[in-house]
């Protein structure tokens, strides 16, 4: 009988994208960003923005940077819901609702902010409003400088859900 670990995050590397093994839209986004010069990459985001989540460059030991934008068709909006993605009032920074997921996901953001775009695959249980689901997804994270004059960067997250199952 085949068994698999309940939770794993693994880096596949962007070579897999170049070899055509990634989701087509994710690949298109990666090509658009990588073919642009630093400081002009943000100009290529328009057609991809609905699929992206954007967060700051403030990664911590405990988790990825806080999120400020969740695209209308992004995987995080699909997974965590409209109420999470577009809060009616803003009283604190936006993070994903599962602290364990936050902790496990942070390395990809560190890699991207260190100048190496991160492409990986993960399968993990996630707690959403007290309900446990198991989700498998591929994700690409790239750090982008909004313009050549900007003194900060933001992370663009492109996730694609491959499998989603309720856990009993």
């Amino acid at each position: 009988m085949l068994t698999r670990p309940e939770k794993f995050f693994t880096e596949i590397g962007t070579d897999a994208i170049d070899r055509g093994l990634a989701d087509p839209m994710l690949s298109e986004f990666f090509s658009a960003v990588m073919s642009s010069q630093t400081g002009t990459q943000a100009l290529r985001l328009k057609s991809f923005l609905p699929y992206l989540s954007l967060c700051s460059d403030r990664v911590t030991d405990d988790g990825p940077p806080p999120i400020f934008y969740v695209g209308s068709q992004s995987s995080q909006r699909d997974l965590f819901g409209e109420g999470w993605a577009a809060p009616a009032t803003v009283s604190k920074a936006l993070t994903t609702p599962d602290p364990e997921l936050e902790h496990a996901a942070a390395d990809g953001y560190r890699s991207a902010l260190n100048g190496k775009p991160y492409y990986g695959y993960a399968r993990t249980p996630v707690s959403i409003d007290g309900n446990l689901v198991e989700v498998a997804f591929e994700r690409l994270i790239v750090a982008i400088r909004p313009s050549v004059q900007s003194d900060y960067r933001f992370c663009a997250y492109f996730g694609v859900i491959q499998d989603l199952q309720k856990k009993t």
């Binding site: 967060c55 700051s56 460059d57 403030r58 940077p65 806080p66 999120i67 400020f68 934008y69 577009a86 809060p87 009616a88 009032t89 803003v90 604190k92 920074a93 936006l94 900060y152």
Partner: peptide, 15 residues
């Protein structure tokens, strides 16, 4: 309102 909330999140995300 939706856009302004995104901008509020932006300020918090960058602290």
């Amino acid at each position: 309102d939706e856009f302004l909330n995104v901008m509020s999140l932006l300020l918090k995300a960058f602290d």
